[in-house]
Nucleic acid binder design. Structure first.
Lengths: 279, 279
DNA sequence: GCCGGTGATACCCGACAGGTATCAGCTCCG
DNA sequence: CGGAGCTGATACCTGTCGGGTATCACCGGC
């Protein structure tokens, strides 16, 4: 199976439409139809049920979509990491959710910079749920993840810190006078709908809350009295005018982890992880 | 990057010889040279240092060898799992080291068979160090691994059991009268050299001990007075004429784990893991 | 029943993977 | 010190196949 075939298949499986998939791939529709047919013939497996009005995935197609994405990510990672290794400039790309764990990250970068054989660390910020992809396809070398929000499935990890959660409210909201609250009290505030985060594919689910892309946007929207959020208590360092934090007793504890691809063999990465666990 | 190019690169990187690599791939040498050159040109990276007498990997080449193998395994897994999914016969392939944890495995299979929605479980036995490969490239769905001998890097795992280790000796050996021994006493027995296990590539390292492929062979060789081995104490169920076991006080504890590829989504696998953790 | 839109088919062309023949550089050895 | 023998690189040819355009066959809906 060639990666070209896999790319074609994934495009069709995602679009469920040969024409649009071909457009996305920058080729014409007939060669795409033929390539998929040939893939099916070589695998001996029907991947799509086609009628002239609709295309749907078979069960085997679902499997190939999941496995094929993983395989394409692995190929992309091989490409990127090889290119990076060839530049001669060692360096690490660390990815974290924008606005999360910023003081922990600052401490980590400071501590690592004093190491004798430290290399440059590029910090890449992204929205939630993008980190795993970046790590998997080689755009990043290491990430800060937050259990239970992120799954660390398929990566090596070390736990760095565990903390409780607080609810962030607009200053002056009635609940801000309370010493603490319960989860049920804040998930259903009638005038403060929960924000909507993007799906892995970049779209937003429907709902009443405002769409947000990162924590900075989120804090601003809370200060504007448009929404509310439950976040690890370390966000307190970002508190400013217009925001108040109240501990949530029964919210799950959040563990910040450092995560990296399991077969990494870089000395620089090992040193960074060692530094992180010693903080 | 196409999988064909990756296969070619890995072949050359493993052989470090264009002619032999071409032979292994079933093509002529010139197209292989050209394909590698083209790969280098497209990546903008030198992968090999060539002289007319020797071919060596550059640092970037080392990276691509490691990452490329992982990517090829992922592609192979996509292929195999898709084919399997299409047969309609659900079923799991469980792989374990021949002769290891056999009673635990028997109990697991028995317990799982009584589950309401149990599927067929094929048991595949292999030598040590092959299991990870089988799991990674889709030939197996789930494995029993033994920490610290096996690394579970890149897989999801659940610990099943932890046990101490014993040394297996030929009956009548002087040490068999002892209530327990220390590791140092058995690793350097002059008349009983340690056995040699195959490398991941199937070859055997040099040394005085007999080569072995699995535990059954090993037990036989021990009974014949040719070698000695330190194994988890559950091997006692295989004791028979000619064999004796003595606890080793300072040998590391061995944990049997059940392991599976991290993005598995099969209900059957989930049920098997659940059964295993309840044993 | 016609129209719009879907994927499949037919056919052509150019790119490129693979083959053979050969060259060029390096070691080793007589 | 020069040739033999091995290495990978180059030159050149050929057939396959990926991609394009034109068109068909099918289906649903107004």
């Amino acid at each position: 199976m060639e990666t070209r075939e896999l790319r074609y298949f994934v495009a069709v499986a995602e679009e469920l439409h040969f024409g649009r998939a071909a457009q996305r791939l920058g080729i014409a529709q007939p060669p795409l139809s033929r390539a998929i047919r040939q893939l099916e013939r070589r695998l001996g497996v029907t991947l799509f049920e086609r009628s002239s009005r609709a295309v749907t995935l078979t069960d085997a197609g679902e499997v190939l979509l999941r496995e094929g994405r993983a395989a394409l990510d692995a190929v992309a990672a091989a490409d990127r990491r090889t290119r990076r290794a060839a530049t001669g400039r060692p360096g690490l790309v660390l990815v974290t959710k924008a606005g999360a764990s910023s003081e922990l990250l600052a401490k980590l970068l400071d501590a690592y910079a004093t190491e004798p054989d430290a290399v440059a660390v590029d910090v890449q910020l992204c929205g939630p749920a993008e980190q795993e992809r970046l790590l998997r396809d080689g755009r990043a070398d290491v990430a800060l993840l937050h259990r239970p929000y992120d799954s660390a499935v398929g990566f090596d990890t070390e736990d760095l810190r565990t903390e409780g959660q607080v609810v962030l409210l607009p200053a002056g909201h009635p609940l801000t006078t309370r010493p603490h609250v319960r989860l049920a009290e804040v998930t259903a505030l009638p005038d403060l709908p929960l924000p909507r985060w993007p799906d892995p594919d970049g779209g937003y689910p429907d709902g009443p809350g405002p769409p947000v892309r990162d924590n900075a946007q989120l804090l601003q929207l809370i200060a504007l009295g448009r929404t509310v959020a439950v976040l690890p208590e370390s966000v307190r360092v970002h508190l400013h005018e217009g925001l108040a934090a109240v501990p949530v007793l029964d919210a799950p504890e959040v563990t910040t982890m450092i995560a990296w691809p399991p077969h990494s063999r870089s000395r620089a990465l090992a040193a960074l992880v060692r530094t992180a666990t010693r903080l």
